[in-house]
Nucleic acid binder design. Structure first.
Lengths: 254, 254
DNA sequence: CAGTAAATTCCGTATATTAGAATATGTTGG
DNA sequence: CCAACATATTCTAATATACGGAATTTACTG
């Protein structure tokens, strides 16, 4: 059974995902709750300021206050503060989008992005975007350093339908690749999620030697791909990740 | 008296602002509630995933899940989608940080930022940052288009202590400036908040002619300031804001 | 290993939440 | 412009849930 807090977040999440403003009826039908109940929940949420009623209409929408909360949280991530300059340098050097992610419930979540001038910002890389292990290079990195048991549970619930001819479709081959990632300290995505989309990522470790995050870099279009380019991206990204690991207290390997 | 939902957000907000992870005792003392109560609230919040208990320690912290909620909301802002390219162009043209804000409870909140390569990202401009009317150019713009009554209430509660010799310290002179902003469609901040810090902002209007947001641009250091530079920033920013207004359906003035 | 401090669970009580009914508000079609 | 409908909001009584204090567990300190 749900309590009030959970109901509140349930509504907020639904409203955040829903493109338009929501009516009481719509929410009531979706959650199978009486409108009187929804109405009161919305009223309380409106009092907190996280929801507001559209002036003129009687519908509700999630307000922008949630951005404040998110921003406040973001500013407290020390990894992000310490990594900023390194990532900025990497973005300039590679001339392509670069991003910083943190492990979150076995997946990877973007906590910073850097888009050089001529590149377009990608919604899939936005701060707060979550990456699945078989869709993003950083997602692979986070999976690679998951405890065995947790990983298995995770892979069991994963969607293995092929998106392209390059998609990894079995847990076995996936685990094999994760081992290689741990060895090389670099993960790659080569047209696995979307044809022509390539990216690399490298792990960041904290003082205790645990995974603290990952640096990701998106490659230019497929027509520019060469072995040298891939090597350059791998090397630079790994170097950046190592510098950040060192900056947050992790001694360099060896 | 507070209800559960409000208590939950109260905790979340406190934890987002607090740099470190929080203990039950700390929260209980701060909010003057019994620890048993705090303990149970945290447990429920942990079930929703917005709070997590530090492994090893028994303290709690706000998780990164709030970033997802914020990101989902952000992606739904049509103004942001339509304004992106214009702002990117402006940032390149001016070679300085450029940002997009939306009006929020009489203040201005950042919903997008663009930092050209050699400029440093400023936390005060981050997405989710809220600007007061006398601290930021965009804040002034949002104040300028507030209904008279709302504005007065707002100015009454404002902090008028001078931060620099240039700070506006009376509601009368402030309202005078707001009138000028409405006339010129450009607001400026000239060392009012911090010496050597200059910025311009221009209003964006929706199809109904209401304020939909503002485009802001930060000037380079004071030593580069010339009348021409200020004029360039004002003109380019206003032109960008007008283009965006037109793009979202507002007919051009005259 | 004992003693302390904090966190968590337990439990009876009281209040806030709940669902349905009644009312108010707004919208559509004649 | 009014009537009929649909939707939102308020009201109310019942009940489940949140609440605070006490008891228990857990972790830390000397």
């Amino acid at each position: 059974m749900n309590n009030t807090l959970q109901n509140g977040f349930m509504l907020l999440e639904f409203m955040a995902e829903s493109a338009n403003e929501c009516s009481v009826k719509e929410l009531a039908e979706h959650f199978k709750l009486p409108n009187s109940h929804i109405c009161r929940l919305l009223k309380t949420l409106a009092e907190t300021g996280y929801v507001q009623q559209i002036p003129g209409s009687r519908k509700y929408r999630i307000s922008l206050k949630i951005l404040c909360l998110s921003n406040a949280r973001l500013l407290k991530i020390t990894l992000r503060q310490k990594a900023r300059l390194y990532l900025q340098k990497l973005a300039v050097k590679l001339g392509n989008p670069v991003y910083l992610t943190a492990p979150f419930n076995g997946r990877s979540i973007t906590i910073d992005t850097f888009f050089p001038e001529n590149t377009a910002g990608d919604a899939g890389l936005a701060i707060g975007a979550v990456h699945l292990p078989n869709c993003h290079a950083c997602g692979k990195v986070c999976a690679a350093y998951l405890p065995e048991a947790e990983l298995d549970g995770f892979l069991a619930g994963m969607d293995w339908t092929a998106r392209t001819v390059h998609t990894i479709t079995s847990p076995e081959s996936f685990k094999q690749e994760l081992a290689k990632i741990r060895q090389e300290r670099v993960a790659t995505i080569v047209s696995e999620n979307q044809l022509g989309l390539g990216a690399v990522a490298s792990p960041i470790f904290n003082a205790a030697g645990e995974l603290a995050g990952a640096v990701g870099a998106v490659l230019p279009g497929e027509r520019y791909w060469t072995d040298e380019l891939w090597e350059k991206f791998k090397t630079e990204t790994r170097n950046t990740a190592e510098s950040i690991s060192f900056a947050i207290g992790c001694p360099l390997p060896e």
